[in-house]
Computed example of a mutant assay.
Amino acid sequence: MSALRVGIRVPPCDRAYRIVETVRRAEQLGFDDVWFPDSQLLWRDVFTTLTAAALGTERIGLGTAVTNLATRHPAVVASAARSVAELAPGRFTLGLGVGNSSVGPIGLRQTTSAAMREGIGMLRALLHGEEWDFEGKVRSRLRDPRPEVPLHLAASGPKNLRLAGEIADGVILLSGVSPKTLAQAIARVREGAEGSGRTAQPPLTVSAFCAVTDDIAAEARQIKPICASIAQNGGAPFLALAGIDVQVPATVPGVYPDLVHAEDWKAAVDICSAWISDEAALRFAQEFCLFGTADQITDRLRALETSGVTGVFLQHVGSYDPPADLIEAVGTSVLTHLKGNDR
């Protein structure tokens, strides 16, 4: 029996009551958590969806993966988090990140490390019912606070990984499951924790694209835009550690709104084929993702647990449909092996 928490990423891509049906199925099949991304132009409001999910489920953990403190003021996030936590006591995790697809389409910049430090400080104070000095003009507090809400920080670069280890209640690692890159990421988190005098490393949740398949090469071609986006956004050195040497231009025309969330996925795959070969995509799937048979994925999840990871959330390819097929495939095969579920 594995203690590793296995979650699934579900974009709020449809009406809330329909998304809740997907979440209920994940709960029935034994998933531990459902994580919802937040991007105001791509999907429905994440906290509206979380509210419906909280009311429509009983056991499964609920979290944001992730919301941000750029399009949403920390005080607004604190109120929303408190409201969801009231509906799902002990089940809600507030995952935070720099913004990415929330800030880019409206011309804002990603949250800096300094701003993230201050924002998390404000969030934590408000959720604990403490007063906060707002720009030296007024001191205010949150009524009916919920101090038990854990604050998890998503990070990929060294600076934010150390920051997460220093101040967050948990860390969402965006490095994939490649052993070399994962070890480096965990080391940076540990540095931050030790530097701040923390006696224990915070919980670590890894995000990973997943496909239960007997034909990894065929499925791997579909994640070329993901690999290209990593290379485009400063991740080429991480890819190189796994033997993937690719160069992608800073701007890729013909893809909206971005490589990871392309509305026309087939076109994005074709465009990215100019830089990401089938061989590179296969290597990426094998190293950074959880692609393979149920047995192969189960073995890799067990290996993650021995590396110190406490949780994983799985992603499917695509942003505008719920991961129903992935939930069925993992829930009826991988989880039965990993956790002994008989649902």
Results as ranks from 00 to 15, higher is better:
Ser2Trp: 05
Ile8Gln: 03
Ile8Glu: 07
Arg15Met: 02
Ala16Met: 03
Ile19Glu: 00
Arg25Pro: 05
Gln28Phe: 09
Phe31Thr: 07
Asp33Thr: 14
Arg44Pro: 04
Asp45Ser: 12
Leu50Ala: 14
Gly56Ile: 14
Arg59Pro: 05
Arg59Tyr: 04
Ala65Phe: 05
Thr71Arg: 03
Ala75Leu: 14
Arg82Asp: 11
Val84Ala: 00
Gly95Trp: 02
Asn100Lys: 00
Ser101Asn: 15
Pro105Val: 09
Pro105Leu: 07
Arg109Lys: 13
Gln110His: 12
Thr112Met: 08
Gly129Gln: 07
Gly129Ile: 10
Gly129Ser: 08
Phe134Met: 04
Ser140Val: 14
Arg141Met: 11
Leu142Trp: 07
Gly157His: 01
Lys159Pro: 01
Lys159Ile: 14
Ala164Leu: 07
Gly165Ile: 08
Ala168Tyr: 01
Ala168Glu: 06
Asp169Lys: 14
Ser175Ile: 03
Gly176Glu: 11
Val177Thr: 11
Ala187Asp: 14
Arg190Ala: 15
Gln201Ala: 03
Pro202Ala: 04
Thr205Gly: 00
Val212Gln: 08
Ile216Met: 06
Ala218Leu: 10
Ala220Arg: 06
Gln222Trp: 03
Lys224Gly: 04
Ile226Gln: 06
Cys227Arg: 06
Cys227Val: 10
Ala228Gln: 11
Ala231Gln: 10
Pro237Met: 03
Ile244Trp: 03
Asp245Phe: 12
Val248Met: 03
Thr251Tyr: 12
Gly254Thr: 04
Ala267His: 12
Glu279Arg: 12
Phe288Gln: 06
Asp295His: 10
Arg300Thr: 08
Thr306His: 13
Thr306Cys: 05
Phe313Gly: 03
Phe313Asp: 06
Asp321Val: 13
Asp321Asn: 12
Glu328Asn: 12
Gly331Trp: 00
Gly331Pro: 14
His337Trp: 00
His337Ala: 14
Leu338Lys: 11
Lys339Gln: 09
Gly340Val: 12
